[in-house]
Amino acid sequence: MIQKFWWKILAFFLLLYTCIYGFFVKVPRLDDRMKETIRNMFFHVPMWFGMMILLTVSLIYAIKFLKNPTLKNDAYSTAFAATGIIYGVLGLITGAIWANYQWGMPWSGDPKQNGAAIAILIYMAYFVLRGSMNDEDKKARISAVYNIFAFFMLFPTLWILPRLTESLHPGGQGSEGNPGINGKDMDMHMRSVFYPAVIGWTLLGVWITSLRFRYILLADQTNNA
């Protein structure tokens, strides 16, 4: 699939649809503060969905690398982690902008915000770790092991801890489901934009990732030639 081009065009049209219809689709009025900003669901939330998918793929290639240590598996794993972090950082920034108008300040120490920041810092350490080693084999092996560790820190910080306490994000306290979004607040009209948005943004992430690992593989071939 990665060599074909149809999914790149699909990504473009899904995002075109999101960026046009996302502004016109009828959205529910939840409270007087939310107003039109609920449309951020089409832009802010897909960043987190995309990050989760990209980092999961990164984990799969890290495990594949440990079973079969090839440069390709390492390049895939690193590239997916890098794009995943970019999406996470964009998610934090867009979240802070939205929070400034919804909750009164950009950073209110919400458990979900803190958890996401910690998770991203843990993943940034992945690149610090890689940069600190010169031996290519050692670098790839240690970073693959660290990648698995980092992924299993994502779960408590994003999915478990924010559910255990009061959170400004919808959900929280474990009873209402996902602490990131409250599915009940989205009606059918919103869903018809939200799911294409998630797929579109994720595909764009995969495309950018593919550029990165192709560059890594090319650079390796040039260095060895």
């Binding site: 790149k8 075109l16 960026c19 950018i208 550029l211």
Partner: peptide, 20 residues
Amino acid sequence: VVAIIVTILTGLFLYVASID
């Protein structure tokens, strides 16, 4: 606003496609 966002989106996609 929609025209501006579509412009940015198209520009970014053209750029990514050219790197590709």
